[in-house]
Simulated assay, not measured.
Amino acid sequence: MEDTSLTTRQAYLAMYAFLSRQYELGCEELGGLLGSMSLLADGQTVDPAVGQDWAEAVASAKSGTVDAYLKLQGRESS
């Protein structure tokens, strides 16, 4: 991935744009989440818990504790 710097707000908006596009492509399960993530006029999220979850996710990413690597489980032989 290209190394770019974003503010926390820009990263949030990038994530929102990405999820919004996935919703447009047919992932209807994202509709409720996007509604909760939407921003009010004061810049806060509709669901305050989403804003807190985002802040925690940013802190995890900055600390290097997010593991996004795919892990495949082997099938047990019968």
Rank of each mutant, 00 (worst) to 15 (best):
L19V: 05
L39Y: 14
V50M: 14
Q52H: 08
A41D: 12
L39M: 04
L70T: 14
L13E: 14
Q22S: 09
Q10F: 04
A57G: 02
E29F: 11
G31D: 15
E24F: 08
W54K: 01
S78Y: 04
L6N: 10
Y23P: 09
Y12R: 00
C27D: 13
S77A: 06
G51D: 12
T4P: 05
K71P: 09
R75F: 05
T65K: 12
E76A: 02
L25I: 01
Y16D: 14
G31A: 14
D47I: 10
D53A: 12
Q52W: 03
A14R: 07
G35V: 12
L30Y: 10
G43H: 04
A59H: 07
S78C: 13
A17N: 09
G26W: 07
T4L: 07
A55K: 04
A68S: 08
E2P: 14
Q44L: 04
Y16P: 08
L70A: 02
T8S: 07
D67T: 05
M15L: 08
F18K: 03
D47Q: 07
D3G: 10
K62P: 07
S20T: 15
F18S: 12
A59N: 05
T65V: 09
G64E: 10
R21W: 13
A59E: 15
S36C: 09
M15I: 03
A14I: 01
R9I: 04
E76Q: 04
A61L: 15
D47G: 07
G43P: 03
G64M: 04
E2R: 00
Q10L: 08
E56F: 02
E28I: 12
G35H: 13
A17V: 05
M37H: 02
D3K: 00
G31M: 12
V50F: 05
L6W: 11
S63N: 02
W54H: 01
Y69Q: 04
A57I: 02
K71N: 09
E28W: 13
L72S: 08
S20P: 11
G32F: 01
D53S: 13
E29V: 11
V50Q: 06
E24T: 15
D67W: 13
Q22R: 14
A17R: 07
G64F: 15
S36T: 00
A49N: 09
Y16M: 11
S38G: 09
G74Q: 07
L39I: 04
P48Q: 12
G74Y: 01
M15Y: 09
L25Q: 07
R21N: 15
A61V: 15
Q73L: 11
T4I: 11
G43V: 01
C27W: 15
Y12V: 03
A68Q: 06
D67R: 11
E28H: 02
L40W: 12
G43Y: 13
R21F: 08
R75W: 05
A11Y: 14
Y23G: 06
D42A: 03
L25F: 05
E56C: 08
